[in-house]
């Protein structure tokens, strides 16, 4: 069990200190763990930032890494989860040529099948947005591919835990 490799989501709350992100990334690289996705940004609490990292690792390794991250002075808390323990989403943006999309007549079905949205449309190109899991955004990409994708980008994961406790108590 401890040696099984799974995808873990690490939720880190930090003070807004310059250089902290690279130190956190370093904890992974030093242990030969690759960072699969990474998302960072300010939380609703002033001065507190959150970093969400996904990484494939054994439980033993991820536990070790998360303890080292939590040990950093400016890290408020660091916790790891398997996917069942969290609610999470990724965001995908896809730019396709508008003529191809319109000529196909499939746009309505595409949007309703994938719960996707149009963010911007002009005679040249259309930007579509899709939120979901990695599998869902990948399925969306596959459906859009026939229209000729100009650009497809995907964010890292953001996640909240499936428990009713406030995530960071010390900053209330």
């Amino acid at each position: 069990m401890d040696n099984e490799i799974r995808t873990y989501t690490v939720l880190i709350y930090t003070e807004n200190q310059i250089g902290l992100l690279s130190q956190i990334a370093n904890v992974f690289t030093r242990r030969s763990l690759s960072i699969w996705t990474l998302t960072a940004g300010p939380t609703a609490i002033e001065g507190v930032h959150t970093i969400t990292i996904t990484s494939d690792a054994t439980r033993r390794k991820i536990d070790e890494a998360v303890k080292q991250i939590e040990k950093r002075v400016d890290v408020i808390s660091a916790t790891y989860y398997v996917s069942e323990e969290i609610v999470y989403r990724e965001l995908a943006l896809c730019k396709v040529p508008s003529p191809a999309l319109l000529e196909s007549g499939a746009i309505e079905k595409l949007l309703s099948d994938h719960h996707a949205r149009i963010l911007e449309m002009n005679p040249e190109f259309t930007v579509l947005q899709k939120t979901g899991t990695l599998r869902e955004t990948t399925a969306f990409y596959e459906s859009v591919k026939p229209f000729g994708v100009l650009q497809f980008v995907r964010s890292g994961r953001v996640a909240v835990s499936r428990d009713a406790e406030p995530e960071i108590k010390c900053c209330k």
Binding site: G19, Q23, R30, R72, V73
Partner: peptide
Amino acid sequence: VTGMTGPITKWNYQ
């Protein structure tokens, strides 16, 4: 200096 000493210090600050 802060970049290179991050992983080898308990804390650093510029």
